[in-house]
Lab assay of single mutants.
Amino acid sequence: MEVRTIKVFTTVDNINLHTQVVDMSMTYGQQFGPTYLDGADVTKIKPHNSHEGKTFYVLPNDDTLRVEAFEYYHTTDPSFLGRYMSALNHTKKWKYPQVNGLTSIKWADNNCYLATALLTLQQIELKFNPPALQDAYYRARAGEAANFCALILAYCNKTVGELGDVRETMSYLFQHANLDSCKRVLNVVCKTCGQQQTTLKGVEAVMYMGTLSYEQFKKGVQIPCTCGKQATKYLVQQESPFVMMSAPPAQYELKHGTFTCASEYTGNYQCGHYKHITSKETLYCIDGALLTKSSEYKGPITDVFYKENSYTTTIK
């Protein structure tokens, strides 16, 4: 009895394709271990004539594949690729409408935090270190965002349907971005203890939790000093293409032309909904596939993004 075979390709990165001759009487799992086709788990399936010449994702289970996976995804987590594939199996079914010149995501599976993050990423200057993220990001900007969303979920250790947080998501993504040249110098002034300067680099240099107003941050924000008295913390120097200011959701007025974009969060910790506000020729609110415009805006804002380049204080 002759062994019926077909020729397929296996890959971990969709760049390096490895030619395989597979036995049609055995499952993919018996031949390769966990195997995925377009995100779908085909591990328990036997090869079919229609699979001839198709590319299958496999887990990096030998040295060659491990090197290829690390170079593309910059992670050695053995569960990463499987999590990416199972997320992709959902995100490829989502709709990605162009809204006001940006790629958004039609609401499904509690994905409003991903839509808000995706919209924000198209408006701030950011370059990702893992080629996987950078490639998928370019495709997302062009309207094909399924891979990018699935990668975000995998890097953030999230599953489809789980509630997510924009600030946490951005923080994970910033860790995989090139923020080497970003720098922030802060000064804390206390009447009792004097003053202390701190220099922050990388992710810490672009994120701040405690106030939404970048102007206020430049002037000074009140913080408790270690001595128990009130101290003032203010920005001395900022070198970065953008800054992200966050605070627990509270009524906040966004003035046209003073910011790049913002995240609105309605609801409580267990259950809520994100919308995205962007400042173009007027203010726009993007909620999944829905767009509304207004000249002014007041609502429960939790993150505001500002364009920056270089700032030095005039406070002496």
Rank of each mutant, 00 (worst) to 15 (best):
S240P: 04
T10L: 15
T192P: 03
F242C: 00
A145M: 04
T19W: 08
Y84D: 04
L200P: 01
T313W: 12
T35Q: 04
T302L: 08
C190R: 05
C261F: 00
Y96C: 00
N268C: 07
D287W: 05
A87M: 03
K106P: 03
Y73A: 04
Y172W: 11
Q197M: 12
Y72F: 11
T314L: 15
G220C: 03
S240D: 03
L81F: 10
L81S: 02
R139F: 08
E168A: 15
Q98C: 12
Y113F: 08
S86N: 14
Q98H: 09
L102S: 10
I286S: 02
W94P: 09
D41M: 09
C225W: 02
Y138F: 13
E215S: 06
A69R: 02
A231Q: 01
A140T: 08
M24N: 12
M245A: 03
L88C: 04
L65Q: 07
W107Y: 00
L283S: 03
D135I: 09
H48F: 11
G101Y: 05
C271S: 11
G272Y: 06
H48P: 12
D41I: 12
A177E: 06
D63F: 09
T11P: 05
K54T: 13
T64I: 12
L173N: 02
A108G: 07
K201H: 14
P60K: 13
Q31H: 15
H276P: 00
L291D: 10
A154L: 08
R141V: 11
T43G: 13
C227H: 04
N309M: 09
E253H: 11
R184P: 01
L212K: 00
A108S: 12
L200G: 02
A247K: 10
R167H: 09
K92N: 08
G33Q: 06
T169N: 07
T43L: 05
C112K: 02
K298Q: 08
A142L: 12
P34S: 11
G82N: 11
T211K: 06
N16S: 08
H90V: 11
L59D: 14
T198A: 06
Y269M: 15
N89I: 14
A289P: 08
R83L: 08
S279Q: 09
C112E: 03
S295H: 07
Y214V: 10
T103Q: 00
G39R: 05
E215Y: 03
Y306R: 01
G272H: 06
N16H: 11
G164A: 02
F70A: 06
T64F: 09
